[in-house]
């Protein structure tokens, strides 16, 4: 006899920080991504229906591509959805996002440990 199915943790997932009664963000970027979506919605950039449809599409594509979808990758899908909608709505271009990402990467590498990472630290800026 096989052991009972235990694929659902009892509200506990090892390695995921949480307080006694609720979830917390694993990493600061997740909180920022969460807040950006809420704020863009408040500004009317997209409706919540659009958001939910885009996010569930993102999750489906990720699952099809082999994402384990265990909840820990949730905010990855969230951020990908946000990037997609920002480009679709003309708030920014994919090229600009990619260039800016590289700029942050150079800035981070050029910033001495312990100092705040600022975009102007990018040596190419």
């Amino acid at each position: 006899m096989s052991p009972p199915e235990r694929d659902i943790p009892r509200g506990e997932v090892p390695g995921v920080p949480r307080d006694a009664d609720g979830p917390v963000f694993d990493e600061p970027w997740q909180a920022q991504a969460f807040a950006m979506a809420v704020k863009l919605h408040e500004r009317g950039v997209f409706t919540w229906n659009e958001w939910a449809a885009a996010l569930s599409g993102e999750i489906r594509r990720a699952q099809a591509a082999g994402d384990p979808d265990t909840g820990s990758t949730y905010y990855r899908h969230w951020l990908a959805t946000l990037e997609r909608l920002v480009v679709e709505k003309g708030l920014g271009t994919a090229g600009a996002l990619s260039e800016r990402k590289d700029a942050w990467d150079r800035a981070a590498r050029a910033t001495p440990h312990g100092r705040p990472i600022l975009l102007e630290n990018d040596p190419l800026a």
Binding site: W29, A35, L82, V86, G92, L97, K101, W104, I117
Partner: peptide, 27 residues
């Protein structure tokens, strides 16, 4: 220094802030 996800989030946020779509303090 920064993870891929962190970089992508910073890229998005800094562009949205520059264009006035989001306010960092409000976030």
């Amino acid at each position: 220094v920064l993870s891929e996800m962190d970089l992508r989030t910073r890229a998005l946020e800094s562009i949205l802030v520059e264009k006035g779509y989001v306010d960092p303090a409000a976030l």
